[in-house]
């Protein structure tokens, strides 16, 4: 009997470490990066620099979490960058016309959610492949931003709003705290809610999920709206950080977000992925950029390194799993 329970414990331990392996592997990479950068650059490990790093990572990191949800459901969301831009510009317009911040935020998030709703409708009801559907909304939304703003930057934002990005909460950058809260919420959703479970079930096997009575519509609409709302938040934070409403803000973020999720162990086939993994993926990419810049590495070479890292990380993960 005791031998049996012991065996069970060992098995449990093994399975537990199995599910953590990707994360563990990422932590090791991160530690290596930190050691390399702190020994080669004397400013890297300074508190101020680390804070800048956290600030920069936060916005990418937030987007990566939305993307993780979509990827786990076996979809993809290319419209994230455009939604960031939209939400940022709407916030800036509202604030520059003197509307109160809460209204600006609500309006931005509602419009962001609307983009997610369109994505969900196209993917679920229109049966348009997610890649195409979100590529369409990406293009349309970005063009709308240009039309609204006349492709011009919106300035004259209140100081208090700009201050948000520099503000500290209990000694930590506000942006990071916001990210951290979103991480907690996302982690809770994936581990503890039916919606979270359904994302995995649907991503792993669509037909089995449907025949098991899972509400497929809610799940698909849910992930795309979640992703867009998260990007809406990221857009507001990015505007605070930039100090202006920038029409091109968020351009290209979709690829970084996909990279972060995938480096973090998410599978583009769906059904596989973790919030912690995506977070670590985002931190690794940002650390490489920041550290590389501090070291004065040629930016093209830096991009070569980052591109290779993405592929190598996924290759190693695949090899480990088989």
């Amino acid at each position: 009997m005791s031998v049996n329970t012991q065996k069970k414990d060992i098995n449990r331990l093994r399975l537990f470490s199995g599910s953590l392996k990707t994360e563990l592997f990422l932590v090791i990479i991160l530690i290596i990066l930190f050691v390399v950068f702190s020994t080669t650059s004397d400013v890297f490990f300074k508190f101020d620099n680390l804070k800048t790093l956290l600030r920069q990572t936060s916005i990418y990191g937030i987007v990566a979490i939305g993307m993780l949800f979509v990827i786990t459901s076996s979809g993809i969301d290319l419209s994230v960058g455009s939604v960031i831009g939209l939400s940022g510009v709407i916030t800036a317009i509202c604030l520059s016309r003197g509307l109160p911040l809460p209204i600006a935020i609500i309006l931005s998030l509602v419009l962001s959610a609307a983009v997610g709703l369109v994505n969900g409708a196209l993917v679920h009801d229109g049966k348009v492949p997610p890649f195409i559907a979100t590529m369409g909304t990406m293009t349309v939304v970005r063009a709308l931003i240009m039309l609204i703003t006349g492709a011009k930057m919106i300035s004259g934002l209140p100081k208090a709003f700009k201050g948000l990005a520099q503000m500290n909460v209990i000694g930590l950058p506000f942006l990071f705290v916001a990210w951290f809260i979103i991480i907690l919420i996302a982690w809770f959703i994936t581990k503890k809610t039916v919606f979270g479970r359904n994302i995995f079930a649907y991503g792993s096997n669509k037909e089995a999920a449907r025949l098991s009575g899972i509400n497929v519509r809610t799940t698909i609409y849910g992930v795309y709206i979640f992703s867009s709302v998260i990007c809406g938040i990221a857009g507001i934070l990015l505007t605070a950080r930039l100090g202006n409403g920038v029409p091109t803000a968020g351009d290209g973020y979709e690829l970084d977000a996909i990279a972060a999720a995938v480096v973090g162990g998410a599978s583009l086939d769906g059904g596989e992925g973790s919030v912690i993994g995506a977070v670590l993926g985002a931190i690794i990419m940002a650390t490489l950029r920041q550290g590389g810049t501090l070291l004065g590495i040629n930016s093209f070479i830096l991009e070569i390194i980052i591109g290779s890292l993405i592929v190598i990380a996924v290759l190693l993960d695949k090899m480990r799993k088989h």
Binding site: V194, R197, F200, A201, S204, N205, E207, A208, A209, L211, S212, G213, I214, G271, E272
Partner: peptide, 26 residues
Amino acid sequence: LIPENRKEQGIALGLSIATNTNMVAI
């Protein structure tokens, strides 16, 4: 319904026994 094509309709292969067992009666 225990469908004819187990791998395509019956079960989520990449998920655990526990997750699959609780999929309907969540």
